[in-house]
Design a protein around this nucleic acid. Structure first.
Lengths: 353, 353
DNA sequence: TTGAAAGCGCTAACAG
DNA sequence: CTGTTAGCGCTTTCAA
């Protein structure tokens, strides 16, 4: 027998009928499968979940129908029944900030490998967006959320009715957190510059309202505040912004031609510093050594490539998901994991030994 | 009356009791709200959705309870009833590729503003990951999907049972698509280099299995294939990868010292070309003009900043969502929108007039 | 081994 | 104006 140029045996014909049925009736539910298989929905469910006892014969029949009908269970119904969605959300200020794609990738990878789907939310560090996202997330019965935020208050975090991991931010003891050791990182950065022979080290700082930025600036101060050469002119504000960093660096370098080291509070500002030096025809690293903080992969592509204190971004994201899932699955203990940044020598600093 | 150091009036006490109730009973459902308000769930639902007739008095009572109990409707239940989730998915090869964060941002922004939530999926261009994501998406009753992919076949796209927009890829007439005009873009790039006086223009091409990469290479060939100076040595493969591009560019430049123009198939490869030139002490743009393709924002931060054919990435993402939502809401016509890349002059090409 | 039935939390006909 | 009821598609007792 042939039809539409295809050969059909009995089996094929059955398949074809099912196909028509599927296309016309459109939504194949467990009920329809059950009907066609001549069993109850309970049995189909048992086959579906490989749970409970089903005779080999029945199982085969059901599986056949499932296959023929290309039946796929409706996850919404399952979620509703279970009261869980197997989804987690990631709240970041802005995925366009080069720090976050790597984090997002880690989170998504890890989530997927554990059977979870990942929702991406850009908050712009805007308080109202954060709140509105958290509300939406709660209503959607998202199972947990990883938050990167400087704006959200501890009380608000406390109020969130689902498992939370705060990233890059110290929190109360009853909220999970993942942080980077800024103190050690900054010390290492400054000491490295000093070991290179830098005699006057400036700092390009992030926004005043950003906690990490403040902390890094403070540790910079702690390291160099006592030095004879130090004065408050040594600090410029790049606000985590490339353009602002270019301008700020130009200003500080023009006013202090003897600056021979620069520690940027993040890599993007480091890029700005490199650009400023280039524009001013200052040779990096010969006359000026620049070190950043973050370790974004683009640091390798700029010229000269940017030496930096590299955060284990991927690991941080991965670990955040791990902690979150543990909480979702019922773990009661809150965890606070601290990661360490590691010196990544590249071209923007003088070559030491 | 005071309790736990707080002052309470009758109203507060009620609130406090509700709070305890909420914390203990944990899940506040429409049923509980109805009970407490002394009405039926139907009425609560009507208040919730501002639909149907409810007396002002009843409405107030219900709203009060909702507020006191901090009741938030369970979206899963709503979704199940409606058969829709108000979520869309974005499938990209890898969010760490700097082209995609901007796209993701546009998609997420637009989706959010239309009341949709956005799911992020990294496929690595891997066929099986794509299929598995699409299956998961279908089961989750995600309403639609935007796909960036070179690997997925047309038949597979055809088989997807929900609205689809393909990005950066020509498709059958019955699938929505958003593309960039590669022909015009490449012509503009090459013509611009020629207008600068470049006499020998090389090309850094993307992977052989990437359609856009191939098309760009073909149009490059069309533009310069007839030139006396041209031979197949003028094409190097950077495979959309920074490191490979550095190596490939070094090789091609070493073998052909008279190359004075280079067209990279994307910006990341452009970065590689700049790095190669820097390492070889070739002055960009004086001895070599480099132009990329994409217009990623990082192009501004490298040194020298990269001239490029800028795609309206954000607009493309926005438009993709618009088309997708139209389809979701029942639009029957398939749309094929072509965008144009625009020359963005920066420092990596000689300054023309 | 299997089916009937209740229910996850919500919405919307349909009556009253 | 409001309540009753059925049902979205699935899972899981509880009986048979």
């Amino acid at each position: 027998m042939t039809f539409k140029g295809k050969r059909f045996n009995i089996k094929n014909v059955t398949g074809y009928i099912f196909e028509i049925y599927r296309k016309v009736v459109c939504i194949v539910t467990i009920k329809k499968v059950a009907e066609l298989a001549g069993v109850s929905t309970a049995t189909v469910s048992r086959v579906l979940n490989n749970k409970g006892n089903v005779s080999a014969r029945t199982k085969m029949i059901v599986e056949d129908i499932i296959h023929e009908m290309e039946y796929e269970p409706n996850d919404l119904a399952r979620m509703l029944y279970r009261g869980r969605s197997n989804m987690i959300a990631l709240l970041v200020p802005d995925i366009m900030n080069p720090f976050f794609p790597e984090l997002a990738r880690a989170v998504e990878d890890t989530a997927k490998s554990e059977g979870y789907t990942c929702i991406l939310c850009n908050t712009d560090g805007d308080y109202y967006k954060e709140i509105s996202y958290i509300k939406a997330i709660t209503q959607k019965k998202i199972d947990g959320v990883i938050i990167v935020s400087n704006t959200i208050t501890e009380d608000e975090v406390d109020d969130i009715n689902l498992p939370v991991v705060m990233l890059d931010r110290k929190t109360k003891a009853n909220v999970n957190s993942i942080t980077i050791d800024n103190q050690a990182g900054v010390q290492d950065a400054i000491n490295f510059l000093k070991s290179l022979g830098c005699k006057k080290i400036a700092h390009l700082a992030g926004p005043e309202n950003d906690i990490n930025a403040q902390v890094r600036k403070d540790y910079y101060l702690k390291e160099v505040g006592q030095e004879k050469w130090f004065d408050s002119d040594m600090i410029a504000f790049g606000d985590y912004d490339f353009d602002k960093s270019v301008i700020a660096t130009k200003k500080i370098l023009s006013n202090n031609s003897d600056i021979d080291g620069l520690f940027a509070g993040n890599d993007l500002m480091g890029f700005g510093a490199l650009k400023a030096a280039y524009d001013l025809r200052i040779d990096v690293p010969k006359s000026l050594s620049v070190i950043g903080f973050d370790g974004i992969s683009l640091g390798e592509t700029v010229t000269p490539s940017l030496t930096t204190m590299e955060q284990p971004i991927y690991d941080m994201g991965m670990y955040a998901v791990k902690i979150l899932l543990d909480q979702i699955e019922g773990e009661k203990v809150y965890r606070h994991k601290k990661f360490f940044a590691q010196l990544k020598k590249r071209e923007s600093t003088k070559q030491g030994d």
